[in-house]
Design a protein around this nucleic acid. Structure first.
Lengths: 329, 329
DNA sequence: ACACACGCTGTGAACGTTCACAGACTTATC
DNA sequence: GATAAGTCTGTGAACGTTCACAGCGTGTGT
């Protein structure tokens, strides 16, 4: 019970395999009669092209590899990004292979995979500053793009991302416009674009009022939001707003504020970032900044495809965020 | 600047390609001298085997496809499952290809892919009862396993899952042990294993006290948790506990309870399921049932590998959950 | 001395495509 | 009626492996 090959189709249609191949690949110069006969033969035999054979002769991989970096913040965004990427790539008959680059052994594995020509392009997800994979991958002479900016590297990798800085600005301006005077911030790790740029946006608006005292660094986790908030309260007991660089950290801050007897939003307004599932499960629900995740993923794929198609350079892009006002601020 | 092939390695080592192939595949019957020479040549040339060529001649795909089903509850579990699967499959040099089966067109695409021999196995994620893909895939004569039970099908698909029913029992028993008398439940959709079996576990414990009146069906979303809770309150104003089949729905219930002036846990105890990121961001934090996600994924892969290795059948497995007690109950 | 197993090596064929090329047949142009 | 251009088709070679087979020494047992 072997799988039918192109020869079987050719035999069934009474035509040579060359013409079958032409039909398969949508060449012009195929007579209507031949085309019909072949299409019927394909349907009859249940033929499906063998990608290994095709890719072997075409010297292509037929797939794109998406590289996940550790550590894995249980990021709900991932699934949206993955889904979108699968869809867009599927339209071009490219399959999406997942790989993970947590430790050196895994990075080596990714590198070998890519160097071996097993992928036509690389889709980086949430890489950190200093990730050694970035440079080596770039040197492998294969299209590489990133979903989310890649920072702190000489080798520039094109990316699509949300306008982190602008989003933070939106939130800061909103807090100011609501009459808040002492606004603190809990940032993300300072080796990530979200960590750095959201702070920049905050500072853009607050200017010199964004003093060292009002800034604490977190690591995206709930727990880090709790402790950062505690330190802020200790240093600046009369703060009247806090902007956390993620919803999860905001929910941590919320816990600490409640434990300290502060009312939200009456005493302290709280702002988050991401509009994740956490944002509506807190009490009160979080005012937050929404990222256009789908669009970001889509644009990232678009950049990658352009590169694969031979563009020698493409421009990175930042997509606008939107402020979602709920009860916490 | 062509990629080195096995011929290049053979030439560099002064040995025939047959022996190189033997070294590559770890055959015995290779002299130490030859092995060393070849290994050096491989390192020197930076040779990486061409999988297309290898898989073509071996008649294998070298990959496993993970099929995501719509609709996409922004399920944080996915990422853990994906990560674990990548790792385990990687050890066997199998790559993980992602596909999505939301509509008929996409299901057709998956089917063609699998029928075309492009995958050595299929890893189903969160399929619903009545998913037409299940039967057709099973008929394709390729190993198929599911992460999470597949219900309502004649064709039996091996799976690994958490002990849904047992987990629900744990929660129900806990609520009873805390002296709760009128315990309601918000279930998941009744065409999913989590929907059905968590209700069964609940009924196991409550027996006849699990009356129709105390049961509402949700669809895993926050909003459905809110409305289900509202209906329950209307029907049974004096209920003193509610068990939601997911943390997200529990957080919806929490909102409704608060709006209705009920204190949690004093007036009404609330239990969730999943121990997702939402569980610690609610107020109060959720008492919930934790699934051993990593183990479930790992076992699913194990089943699939056994099938790929030629086992003609494998036994499904349910892994024990654990009760995580926080403040909501 | 012979047969025989054992360890190791090289070679040809095959896997299922695509692509370039050559050729055949049709139609248009002078 | 010859030439050219255009449309369509079949064929051979190539892609980079693996695998079965044959062959060659070398040692071992009779």
């Amino acid at each position: 019970m072997k799988r039918p090959t192109i020869h079987d189709v050719a035999a069934a249609a009474g035509i040579s395999r060359g013409t079958v191949s032409r039909v398969l690949n949508g060449d012009r110069y195929v007579s209507p009669a031949a085309r019909i006969a072949i299409e019927r033969a394909i349907a009859e035999t249940g033929y499906v092209v063998n990608r290994n054979a095709r890719n072997l002769v075409r010297q292509r991989a037929g797939s794109v590899v998406m590289v996940l970096s550790e550590p894995p913040f249980e990021d709900p965004n991932y699934t949206t990004t993955i889904r979108t990427a699968i869809r867009r790539l599927g339209e071009r008959d490219l399959s999406l292979v997942m790989m993970i680059a947590g430790d050196d052994r895994e990075r080596e594995q990714v590198l070998r995979y890519v160097r071996g020509g097993h992928a036509d392009g690389v889709f980086l997800l949430s890489t950190h500053a200093g990730d050694p994979l970035v440079d080596t991958l770039h040197g492998a002479g294969i299209p590489v793009v990133s979903c989310g900016a890649v920072i702190g590297r000489e080798t520039v990798i094109p990316y699509a991302a949300c306008d982190e800085r602008g989003g933070a600005r939106q939130m800061a301006e909103y807090l100011v416009s609501r009459g808040r005077r002492k606004i603190a911030m809990i940032t993300g790790p300072m080796d990530t674009p979200g960590g750095i740029q959201r702070l920049e946006g905050f500072a853009d608006v607050l200017g010199r009022k964004a003093s060292k005292k009002l800034i604490e660094h977190g690591d995206w986790t709930h727990a880090s939001g709790e402790t950062a908030m505690a330190r802020l309260l200790e240093r600046v007991p009369d703060l009247d707003a806090v902007f956390a660089a993620s919803d999860v950290m905001a929910s941590g801050a919320l816990h600490t504020l409640r434990a300290a007897g502060r009312r939200v939003p009456e005493d302290v307004a709280v702002g988050g970032f991401d509009d994740s599932s956490v944002a509506i499960s807190t009490h009160p629900p979080l005012t937050t900044v929404r990222q256009p995740l789908r669009d970001v993923a889509q644009e990232t794929v678009r950049l990658l495809l352009a590169l694969i198609d031979g563009a020698d350079r493409v421009d990175s892009i930042a997509l606008p965020t939107s402020l979602i006002v709920r009860d916490s601020a």
